[in-house]
Simulated assay, not measured.
Amino acid sequence: MKKFVSGVVVAAAVGSALTLGAPSAQAARYYYGAIALSTSTGYIGYSYDYSDVDTAESRALSSCDAADCQSVVWFANGCGAVAYSDRTATWSWAYGDSRRTAQSRALGENYSDAAIVHWNCTSNHSK
């Protein structure tokens, strides 16, 4: 039996950055990414640095190459990760502001033998 863990969507707060000597603030740019997954084949599609979440998800789905691909996680100015447990045939996924956070969360939603099988980040993610 396969256990599927739902991904949680991130919505980041909009901020602005001041440049010394600049007369006004500039709004921070948001970059969106997504990961699509076929749980029957293990195929993964992904996207990064799109201007909106719908386009990011559409691109991830179109690059997945399996009929049953579904968008499992999207993120803004951050990262997504997918983990898989061979022992239990369990998939999990998560997002975070950094690669390390996304990977840690994806592994935390799975069994102890799980390993990261994919991750990707947008621009403006935390290092």
Rank of each mutant, 00 (worst) to 15 (best):
S6C: 14
S6H: 15
V8T: 15
V9A: 06
V10C: 15
V10P: 15
A11I: 14
A13S: 07
V14D: 14
V14S: 04
V14F: 10
G15E: 12
L18P: 08
P23A: 13
P23E: 08
S24C: 10
A25N: 01
A25Q: 09
A27D: 03
A27L: 13
A27P: 03
R29N: 14
Y30N: 10
Y32M: 02
Y32F: 06
G33W: 00
G33Q: 02
A34W: 03
A36V: 11
A36Y: 06
L37E: 07
L37N: 09
S40T: 15
G42M: 01
G42N: 02
Y43A: 06
I44C: 10
I44A: 08
G45E: 12
Y46A: 14
Y48S: 02
Y48F: 11
D49A: 01
S51E: 03
D52N: 14
T55F: 00
A56F: 10
A56Q: 07
A56T: 01
E57Y: 11
A60N: 06
A66K: 06
D68G: 07
C69S: 09
C69T: 03
C69I: 05
C69Q: 00
Q70L: 15
V73C: 14
V73L: 08
W74D: 09
F75T: 00
A76L: 08
N77M: 05
C79R: 00
G80W: 04
A81Y: 02
A81C: 00
V82Q: 01
Y84D: 09
Y84I: 14
D86V: 05
R87Q: 12
T88D: 13
W93Q: 12
A94Y: 05
Y95S: 01
G96A: 10
S98R: 02
S98C: 00
R99H: 02
R99L: 00
R100V: 04
R100E: 04
T101A: 13
T101G: 08
Q103H: 02
R105N: 04
A106E: 01
A106Y: 06
E109P: 04
N110Y: 06
D113Y: 12
D113W: 06
D113P: 11
A114V: 15
A114T: 12
A115W: 09
I116N: 03
V117H: 01
V117C: 00
W119M: 01
W119R: 00
W119N: 02
N120E: 13
T122K: 07
T122N: 08
S123A: 08
S123I: 01
S126R: 14
